[in-house]
Every structure is written in structure tokens, then in C-alpha cells.
């Protein structure tokens, strides 16, 4: 897994009940944190606040199964795998028998660009890590620029289509809904988004450092999830990246 650690520090050999934590991208600097939540009409909750989530490790794949009263008898399964050709991870979210009123909430930000010690218990999408993070949103992908002008860093992301993505205020994370409605006038920019969930239809996330072997579009993610790698079209091989 090279330097990448998708910090899910509970390495489990069997399924246990656990508290789900946020997903941190470490390269080895803190390159951002993905927080997930659920929204039901005017209510919302962070998955990291929910203490009964089944977690299982299967090789490089980590699987979480969420059951909650909001889901009736249904469930949400969240699986992650590291990428083989670059720093990053791909995530698959599948639903079974969940009510139509449930939306996935996700937030991403806090691209600090520095190596720090994380205790694992606290939210690492801290407002102070968000300063000068610049998000370029293009449909269901985004690029985040972080670091400094002399040491600029870039992370790419693909997110589910039909997501309503907003530039938001990382100071206002009391609930997913407060984050989503916080507005862009702030000094701690992060992304907050709503994604509709459909039963028996998987959605994907992918966070990665782009390189000639790792240049992805959303339609590639199912295969990328299966293999951890996706062979880029050979016509692109001659195109070398050069800085402006």
C-alpha cells in the first residue's frame, strides 16, 4: 500500500461491532478527510457518531455495514480499497432495502499538507486545516489545491453523480445539515454534499494523486474497485505532464 494509509486504524480479522470513524487520506501528509452522514428530511447524523457499525477486514478491503432505525430493516454497506498505481483509495457504497427518504451526506476538506499525529478519536476535518484549500468542482469530480504557492499540492476526487456539492464552512459541523447549509463566506472552506441513494445501486468515491497511470473518470470506478488499478487508454501514454 506504499505510503498511503486510509486511516481506518481498526484492523479487524473478524466482524465486530464498532464505531465508524472518518476517512483520512494520508500521503504521508494529511491530505484531507472524508466525513459521511445520513440525512432524513430535516434530520441528520454523522456516521462517526453512530456506535453500532459492523466492521470487517478482507485482505486490503475494509467493509462496514450500517443498520439504523432510519433504515428500517435495510442496510448500507461501505467498502474501501487502496489504489495500486497511486496514493489514494476507492470506496463503494451499496444499499439494501433502505427508505427513499434517506440521502447520503458527505463532506471533504482539511487538506493540511503536513505530517501530523492523529489520535483517531477526533474529527480531523478541522477548520484550521482548511485554510487556503481551493476546490475546483467539475460535475462529479473535484480537484483540491492545498499547501503553499511554493509547495503546491493537488488531490483529485471523483464522487457520485447527482451529488449536490457546495462550498461550505468547516466551522459549522455540528450536524451534516448545518454543514450543508453553512454557506461559502468563511475562512475554512470545505465541500459538503447530498447524494441520493437508490436501493441495489452502488455509488463510488475515489480520492487519488494523479499520475500517468492514475487518471480516472467515474465510469472506471467499478473496475478500479475490483482490481485496484485501471489501464489508461494507450493513446494517452505519449502525453507527458509538464508544469505551466
Amino acid at each position: 500500500m506504499r505510503n498511503l494509509v486510509v486511516l481506518w486504524m481498526l484492523i479487524l480479522s473478524m466482524s465486530i461491532m464498532a464505531q465508524m470513524r472518518d476517512f483520512q487520506v494520508i500521503t504521508p501528509e494529511l491530505t484531507g478527510t472524508l466525513r459521511l452522514g445520513l440525512i432524513r428530511q430535516n434530520e441528520s447524523l454523522w456516521l462517526s457518531d453512530y456506535k453500532k457499525i459492523a466492521a470487517k477486514k478482507n485482505g486490503t478491503e475494509t467493509i462496514y455495514t450500517i443498520k439504523h432505525e432510519w433504515l428500517n430493516k435495510g442496510s448500507i454497506r461501505i467498502s474501501t480499497k487502496p489504489l495500486l498505481d497511486t496514493h489514494g483509495f476507492v470506496m463503494k457504497i451499496e444499499t439494501t432495502d433502505i427508505p427513499a427518504s434517506i440521502h447520503l451526506f458527505w463532506a471533504f476538506g482539511g487538506c493540511l499538507g503536513e505530517v501530523i499525529n492523529l489520535t483517531g478519536d477526533e474529527n480531523s476535518l478541522k477548520p484550521e486545516f482548511c485554510k487556503d484549500n481551493v476546490f475546483s468542482i467539475e460535475g462529479n469530480s473535484f480537484t483540491v489545491y492545498y499547501g503553499t504557492s511554493r509547495k503546491l499540492r493537488i488531490l483529485e476526487a471523483l464522487v457520485p453523480p447527482d451529488s449536490d456539492v457546495r462550498l461550505s464552512d468547516a466551522h459549522q459541523q455540528q450536524t451534516p445539515l448545518s454543514f450543508f447549509n453553512s454557506g461559502k463566506k468563511n475562512d475554512a472552506p470545505a465541500l459538503a454534499a447530498l447524494t441520493p441513494l437508490k436501493n441495489n445501486e452502488a455509488v463510488y468515491f475515489c480520492f487519488y494523486k494523479q499520475n500517468p497511470k492514475a487518471d480516472y473518470n467515474y465510469f472506471m470506478l467499478p473496475e478500479l474497485y475490483k482490481k485496484g488499478s485501471y489501464e489508461v487508454h494507450s493513446e494517452t501514454q505519449w502525453m507527458k505532464s509538464t508544469p505551466d
Partner: peptide, 14 residues
Amino acid sequence: GKGLTREESRLPGV
């Protein structure tokens, strides 16, 4: 240019 990228993807079709 809604579907154009300002970023560095080299994928065919972009």
C-alpha cells in the same frame, strides 16, 4: 464550457 476541465486529465474524450 460546463463539461470542460481546467485540470490536467489526459483521458481520451476529455
